[in-house]
Structures are given as C-alpha cells and as structure tokens.
Amino acid sequence: MFGSDLLPIMKNAAVLIALFLVAASVPNVGASLDDARGRPQGTPLQEKACCAATEKPAAPKDACCAAKSAPKPAACCPATPAPAPKACCPAPAKTENPESETENYTKESLYQLEVTFTDDTGKTVALGDLRGRPVVLNMFFASCGYACPLTVTDLLAIQERLPAAQRAQTLFVLVSFDIARDTTEVLAKYRAQRALDGQWVLLRGPDDSVRELAALLGVKYKQEADGMFSHSNLVTILNREGEIVHQRQGLKGGLEEAAAALAAVK
C-alpha cells in the first residue's frame, strides 16, 4: 500500500548512508539526560525583544513574557545582561515563533529552522547566528573513535588549503549528537585536543535541536546500547544565507569537491 509517490523515495532509500559503529566503550559520565534536555531559553534576539519592551511600557507583557502574568521589568532586564533570559521568560517549552523573523531568510536557508545550541563556552547560539559566513557543518560526537576524528582531520585539511582571506571568513561547525555526554567542558576539551582555532564552532544542543537539524541535513543517527552512535557521515557546506551548496557523503574522497564548493561561495 505504498502510494505511487513513495516508490522513488524508497528506491533512493538508505543508499546514501554510510554507517559507523564505533567500538570504543566509554562510561556514561557527564550531565544527566534531563540536564542535557533542558532547553536554552532566550536567544540574544529574545533578550533584545525583552528589554526593548520595557522601553515601551504599553505592551511589556506581550513582548516579553506572553501569557505570563505581571513580569517585573526589573527581573526582565537586569542591569547586567548576561543571565537574563531565564528570569525573563519562564515559558515551559520552546516557544515556536511561526510568524517571526524567518521571512528574512531565503527559501532554501537552513536558518529558517528555529533551534538553538550551546557552544563550548556555554554561550547560546541560534542556528541563524551563523548567517553571513560560509559554513562547513558536520555532526559528530566527541567520544567517537573512528569516523568523526577522520572527518575533522579532513576539515582541517580543507581549512588549511583555503586562501587566507577566505579562511578568515569560513566557520567550521561541529554539532554533537551526544546530548548527554558532550557537555560544554567536553567540547572545550575536544577543541584543545584537536587544536581547533577560533573559526571552529563546537555546539551541543537539546534533543529537539539536534534531531531537527539532523533531519534537515539528511543525517541519520542512532545511539547504540553502549552509548556510541551510528551515524551518517555527511559534511554540508552552506553559503552565507545558510543554503546547502554541497554535501560530501562518506569518509573517502570528495575533499577536492568540497573545497571547490567552499571556494565558490562568494
């Protein structure tokens, strides 16, 4: 009972996926799953909207903490901006903002996906924050013993070969599948171990963000009973608008093509 429209999809099927099962076994340390699932509240954008609202006393509730009763402006926008978001908008779930800024993005821009991550310094990063730079995006996990290190080595080689001007522009973004173990500290350690410079962005996310980004990229992943992940090996190159200009599948070859695609990003 597959609809006729399903057949071509099924034929393409799992063909493109290279799976890796990494054999190392690492004890389950780090943040509990619940901690890791905690959704970061408040992107920089929301913070701004929040504080802007206090200047316009007419509609502070709507702009800042919709549906919440009487938020105190003081709690909303403290003098020190850093830890504000939680106090500002204690909404229980990620607020999807269907009519928000997304129309600024192009039709093909991945940045339409309204998800946020945390980087290896603990800073909240919305996917859209990557806008304006050529991006090389790869999903990985820090305890991966085989495929991910190879891919990072390949990406370092690509970075090495970029002309200086372009190297200064291009971001290399690693997003972890391992929401439980890849804490900010683990990511920071990974950065140090692999000597990744300031052009590298290491992100961890709540489950929703990771799963939706993976679906958008076409990356399949599955945690095995031993805590390792099977996953597609897929390096994605985004232009400045966040549109996919190239995907490199698998682990072997494809470096020249990827570098060429990156070089072609204006």
């Binding site: 063909v15 996926i17 290279a18 799976l19 099962l21 799963r211 992943y221 599955k222 945690q223």
Partner: peptide
C-alpha cells in the same frame, strides 16, 4: 515517529561493503 531518522539498517559497517550492505 519522532525518531524516524534513527531507522537505518544497522550493523557493523566499517568495511568497504558498508554502503552495499546498508540497503534496507
């Protein structure tokens, strides 16, 4: 289902035959 993108034919697939074997 929420985790549809975990559905991949699973197995030790480090070898060169990985792609071939992973056809569902």
């Amino acid at each position: 289902v929420d985790d549809f993108n975990t559905a991949m034919v699973t197995g030790e697939s480090r070898g060169d035959s990985g792609l071939e074997r992973d056809l569902f």
